[in-house]
Amino acid sequence: MSSLLCSSIGKKLLMGLSGLFLMMFLLIHLTVNSLLLIPDGGDTFNAAAHFMATNPFIAVVEPLLAIGFIVHIVWGILLTLQNRKARGSARYASGNKTKGVTWASQNMLILGITLFAFLVLHVAHFWVKMKLTGDPLLNDVTVNIAGVPTEVENAYALINATFAELWVVIVYVVAGIGLALHLSHGFWSSFQTIGFSNDIWRKRLTILGNVYAWFVGIGFSLIALLQYLFFQG
């Protein structure tokens, strides 16, 4: 087992599996976030956030998610450094004119670092305030959950106030595009890495991957943008 994880393919396996896991998480995250667009003052979203925060399943998934990110980032950097060494320092004077190679596939680390920078900001904006420091905006509100009036944290108010600022929205839109690009290569690549691809599936996975990547990337951007434009005041 240890020799597997030290091998090139084994390290890539960790990259692919962590990437697949993060992509599944993003889909759930986007689904919950889409409730931010229901014009009911945030009641549905707050109820869903309450369900997520109190659910024992999520208590297990949260540390897993942190591990997933750490593995992905650490191995991503490690692999890139090893690859630079394997490539060597000599460059081609006549450049690289290979056609048909996507820009994203050659810039996964840069895109990843952009996502990491966003992640730090994102965690500081929401997770830190909701789990550690608290915030006056989060004061409990009462929502009806399945007919039962329940006191829940007003996560909606915090999010809505954060998206009142234009610079935050711009950062989210840029990060959304970065995410879409990262995954436009990452999606199919993770399947190729775990061995699930061939000439036919490659075409399918590339199309599916692009649909997924832009759906998720534009989805997150759009929610921030619409919150800024139509949900203030």
């Binding site: 090139s8 393919i9 390290k11 890539k12 692999l79 090893q82 690859n83 060494k85 394997a86 490539r87 690289n96 290979t98 056609k99 048909g100 190679v101 996507t102 596939s105 050659q106 996964m108 290569h185 199919w188 690549s189 190729q192 890495t193 775990i194 061995g195 699930f196 691809s197 061939n198 000439d199 490659r202």
Partner: peptide, 28 residues
């Protein structure tokens, strides 16, 4: 040698048109 990140430049430049589908098979 480095770790493959599935960019596919090899397949484009290969004089024999070898497909990276073989890389998926080797991974498997």
């Amino acid at each position: 040698f480095g770790n493959c990140t599935n960019t596919g430049a090899c397949e484009v430049e290969c004089p024999k048109g070898i497909s990276i589908a073989h890389i998926a098979r080797l991974n498997r």
